Simulated scan of single mutants.
Amino acid sequence: MTAKRTPARQRLLETADRLFYTEGVHTVGIDRVIEEAGVAKGSLFYNFSNKDGLVAAYLAGRDESRRKRVARHLEGLDDPVGKILAVFDALQEVVSAPGYNGCPFANANAEAAPGSVEAQALRTFRGWLADMFLALAEEAGFVDPADTADRLRLLYDGAVANAQLDAHPGAVGLAKELASMVLQASPRNVLQAKG
């Protein structure tokens, strides 16, 4: 019985994910991705149209993975404050993994033109992150959920940057500790604060 060969689309995505994340979207040429994926050049154009299509698919895959990871960390939690802090646990999982190289969206966007697929992916991710923190702050009953969410996002972003720039995965634990302090200091509506 012969082993089933991985489809060209999947091989291209897996190779792009590895190369784009470790070396950079703008550094890695499409010919290298094609060669390392072991596919014909036509496979790229059939599956993604061009490099932008492949970059968009790579970033969409990273976005989906991040959302699933956060959802997994929130699963089974009832306490809204616990849910907020669990977002930092999901981040800790990422920054502690071998090969952590920062935020794939920010990295890809660093040299991208405004309106590019990289810029769009960054806006999509940032919108999701902002909406998630806001929804959790509203669920927790904070009097000013937008302000609380902004503070949490700033701590999250700082942890991402510090973990990469200073190779300091412990930054996430510190950010989670500070987030807990922010949550304790932020006024909550009486009924939700008791729940």
Rank of each mutant, 00 (worst) to 15 (best):
V55R: 06
V55N: 10
Y58W: 14
Y58M: 08
L59S: 08
A60W: 01
G61V: 09
R62S: 07
R62N: 06
E64L: 15
S65M: 14
R66W: 15
R67W: 08
R67N: 05
R67C: 05
K68V: 12
R69T: 14
V70S: 01
H73S: 09
L74G: 06
L74P: 01
E75Y: 07
L77H: 04
D78P: 00
D79T: 07
D79M: 05
P80V: 02
V81R: 13
G82I: 09
I84M: 14
I84G: 01
I84Q: 09
L85P: 00
F88Q: 02
D89I: 10
D89G: 08
D89F: 06
A90W: 06
E93L: 08
V94N: 03
V94F: 02
V95A: 02
V95Y: 03
A97C: 01
A97D: 12
A97N: 07
P98W: 11
Y100P: 05
N101V: 12
G102I: 03
P104N: 05
F105K: 03
N107D: 11
N107A: 15
A108K: 12
N109P: 07
A110T: 12
A112S: 15
A112K: 13
A113N: 09
P114Y: 06
G115M: 09
G115W: 11
S116K: 10
S116M: 11
A119D: 13
A119Q: 09
Q120Y: 03
A121V: 08
L122G: 03
T124Y: 03
T124Q: 12
G127L: 06
W128N: 01
A130D: 15
M132W: 03
M132G: 05
F133K: 03
L134C: 02
L134S: 00
A135E: 13
A135T: 11
L136S: 02
A137M: 07
A137G: 03
A137D: 04
A137Q: 10
A137N: 02
E138D: 11
E139Y: 03
A140H: 11
G141M: 07
F142M: 04
V143P: 00
V143Q: 09
V143N: 01
D144E: 14
D144C: 01
D144P: 00
P145F: 05
A146F: 04
D147A: 12
T148Q: 03
A149T: 06
A149W: 00
L152A: 03
L152K: 02
R153F: 02
R153K: 10
L154C: 02
L155A: 04
Y156G: 00
D157R: 09
D157S: 13
D157W: 09
G158W: 08
A159Y: 07
A159T: 04
A159Q: 01
A161T: 09
A163Q: 02
Q164Y: 11
L165M: 11
A167M: 01
A167Q: 11
P169I: 04
G170D: 12
V172G: 01
G173H: 06
L174G: 08
L174V: 14
L174R: 10
A175V: 02
A175R: 02
A175E: 00
K176G: 00
E177M: 12
E177D: 11
L178A: 11
A179N: 01
S180Y: 00
V182K: 00
L183D: 07
L183E: 06
Q184E: 14
S186N: 03
R188Q: 14
N189Y: 10
V190E: 13
L191E: 15
L191P: 04
L191M: 10
L191I: 11
L191R: 13
Q192K: 14
Q192H: 11
Q192F: 13
A193F: 07
K194E: 15
G195I: 14
